[in-house]
């Protein structure tokens, strides 16, 4: 670069320091760009829920509920919860990758709101949940699922879904900060997610389970989330259903958001 170029380059006036919200939106924009530049991740995101919905409905549906159609009515709100819970892994993996490459060193040396990069990850999460949720719902509708709660019920259910995803997001962000290899973030995350998701009422009612397991399933936050989702989508949710479903995400956020900040800033 020539001297004149350098002078022109350095003569620039500094803009006013932007707000934390503006910082967060920039990171949200980055998350959205990832969909454009790394479309591969959409494949996982789209295929897994399609497979689960079809397999469970047609393979187990008849045996579990008499007919695939009847089972779908029970299962669809649950598979939405399951998908969102598993989706949270992407943020953690992305974070672990970024940290390994020194990208976050750049962010940390900028005068920005320290939580802004994480808010951006959350934006990416919401987009993922929205894409995956919309696909599952569309397939469900095609196969004969009917949300009796109507448009309002579905919208309310999706909002609850985002809250659940938001809570789970912190788990993987913390794992991403603690674990330096993205693959390990995924495997260790799944190691605790699988029992949590399968020992819930997402796939089957716990009536036939042994006593000790039933006790766990009934208080499992994933079950509470699935129950509230079913209620909202069928239009039969009580305020209490929704409130207890929100306890899990709220507790996770209260515990893990400060943990995130602490882990991030102490490095």
């Amino acid at each position: 670069m020539t001297d004149t170029q350098t002078h022109a380059l350095l003569g620039i006036q500094r803009p006013r320091r932007p707000s934390g919200v503006s910082n967060a939106l920039v990171f949200g924009w980055r998350a959205a760009l990832k969909f454009k530049y790394v479309p591969e991740q959409l494949f996982d995101l789209v295929m897994t829920p399609i497979m689960f919905t079809l397999l469970f409905t047609f393979v187990f549906g008849g045996a579990l509920a008499g007919s695939p159609k009847e089972y779908l009515q029970f299962f669809l709100p649950g598979i939405l919860v399951q998908t969102v819970v598993f989706n949270a892994v992407y943020s953690g993996m992305g974070l672990s990758t970024d940290l390994g490459k020194g990208l976050f060193d750049r962010f940390r040396s900028l005068p920005i709101w320290p939580l802004a990069p994480f808010a951006g990850l959350m934006v990416g999460d919401v987009l993922r949940h929205l894409i995956a949720g919309a696909i599952i719902l569309s397939i469900g509708l095609m196969l004969g699922y009917r949300p009796e709660g109507g448009v309002f019920g579905v919208v309310a259910a999706f909002l609850l879904l985002f809250a659940i995803g938001f809570g789970m997001g912190w788990v993987f962000i913390v794992l991403g900060l603690l674990i330096s290899t993205p693959m390990t973030v995924m495997t260790s995350g799944f190691a605790f997610l699988f029992p949590l998701v399968f020992a819930s009422n997402i796939m089957v009612e716990p009536a036939t389970m042994p006593e000790w397991l039933r006790v766990f399933v009934e208080v499992n936050p994933v079950s509470l989330a699935a129950t509230a989702m079913r209620g909202l989508m069928s239009g039969a949710a009580s305020l209490q259903d929704v409130a207890v479903a929100l306890i899990g995400p709220a507790v996770l956020t209260i515990l893990l958001a400060p943990t995130t900040l602490w882990l991030y800033l102490r490095r």
């Binding site: 980055r30 760009l33 970024d98 490459k101 020194g102 990208l103 976050f104 060193d105 750049r106």
Partner: peptide, 11 residues
């Protein structure tokens, strides 16, 4: 930093 602090997926 010593290691490029860039987002490799982005342009």
């Amino acid at each position: 930093g010593q290691f490029a602090s860039l987002d490799e997926d982005l342009t």
